[in-house]
Write a protein that binds this DNA or RNA. Structure first.
Lengths: 114, 114
DNA sequence: CGACTCGTACGATAGCTGTCGTAGTACGGT
DNA sequence: ACCGTACTACGACAGCTATCGTACGAGTCG
């Protein structure tokens, strides 16, 4: 789980999910600066690490944060983590949630161009 | 920081540091199932991610958990994390802290043999 | 039906990283 | 002086993984 959450892109997804008042968002709701393939990859990692739940709801695939399960396993962890991410976000970037997440000096692969 | 803590070996180090009533332990106090080179590597990652503090105390190098700094930056995170690790530890392995950490099916490199 | 959108699967690629071994430095004991 | 301990630096290697592109199936709309 720590590994899953230690990627900026995935942490961003989780934060958006947690911020969403409703609890389920479609994959395409997220406007991530990566291709669809990569998005699928990240959602899979999150699902396989038990952080989110994915269900087909008619035509779209809804993603839900498994908050209760996580809280049962690791009480307080998710909350503290989200709070920490929020604090760091507001400390570094101005825009709250819209942090670039690995702007420029990414550590791996290309990000978008080509 | 999440990345630093998402490695079993490093989490183990941090847990031992946190468990130590005194706050500073020498590198060699830890009996990790890896070579000294790898140990140095992990300590460096922990130091560079700001989780621990290293000071030369005479001949030995003492490692201290930067608990207060971390708590200031991410209130409650470290506590929740350690608690979660403890719970998971007692759930999976019997021996509390002495979990093998990547026994057998490690994902990378060889572990010891050769 | 055809076109479009959403999401997946597969293969490729580059970079990170955990691990090791060997060699080196600093320091204290014999 | 010599050796042992503690730790680091550097190089090598294998595996993971974040990313991309392309191709594909499912479903919706004109």
């Amino acid at each position: 789980m720590l590994h899953a959450l230690s990627d900026p892109m995935r942490l961003r997804i989780v934060r958006e999910l947690a911020a969403g008042s409703g609890d389920e968002l479609s994959c395409s709701h997220f406007d991530l600066p990566v291709t669809k393939s990569t998005t699928t990859h990240h959602f899979r990692v999150l699902r396989e690490s038990g952080v989110i739940r994915q269900v087909y709801r008619g035509t779209a695939k809804m993603n839900g944060l498994r908050r209760d399960d996580l809280d049962a396993l690791f009480p307080g962890l998710l909350g503290a983590l989200l709070a920490a991410a929020d604090r760091q976000s507001t400390r570094l970037g101005v825009a709250g949630l819209n942090r670039p997440a690995r702007e420029g000096g990414g550590r791996t692969g290309r990000v978008r161009p080509r």
